[in-house]
Amino acid sequence: MTPANAFETSVGHFWGILNTRDYMRARFALNVQLREAATLDSIAEMVDHYRDMLRLCRNDNMGIRDILPCLLLQLDRDQECYDFVKWWMVESQVEEDWREDGESYLSTHDADAYEDVTYFDQRFLDLNHAIAILLLKVKLLVDVRSLRLCRKVLEGRNWPNEIIDKVQLSSISSPLSQKLVGLSIQELEALENRLIVQCQKLGGYTCTANFHFWRNFWEANDHLEENGLPQCSSQGSWEEMLLVFYHSHPAWWQTEGVVELLTIADRFAMGMRLKNIDMPAKQQEALMKDNPAFGPNMVGEVAGGRDMWMWMERALKTQDRYLM
Rank of each mutant, 00 (worst) to 15 (best):
A6H: 04
G12T: 11
A26S: 14
R27F: 13
A29D: 15
A29N: 14
L30T: 15
L30Q: 15
V32F: 02
E45H: 10
H49E: 12
H49A: 00
H49T: 08
R55N: 14
R55K: 15
R55F: 09
R58C: 03
L73V: 02
Q74D: 06
D76K: 15
C81S: 11
F84T: 00
M89L: 13
M89R: 14
V90C: 02
E91V: 01
D110I: 05
A111N: 01
D121S: 12
Q122E: 15
R123H: 01
L127Y: 03
L127W: 07
D143A: 06
L154H: 03
R157H: 11
N158Y: 05
S184A: 08
Q186C: 00
L195C: 04
V197T: 10
Q200I: 01
K201M: 13
K201T: 03
K201I: 02
T208L: 15
H212E: 09
N216F: 14
W218C: 02
Q235A: 10
W238R: 12
E240A: 05
M241S: 02
S248D: 08
W252P: 04
T263Q: 09
D266M: 11
F268P: 09
M270L: 11
R273I: 07
L274D: 12
L274P: 00
Q284K: 14
Q284H: 00
L287W: 05
M288L: 03
K289C: 07
P292K: 06
N297G: 02
N297T: 12
M298H: 11
G300D: 12
D307S: 13
D307M: 13
M310T: 10
W311H: 13
E313W: 00
R314F: 01
Q319C: 13
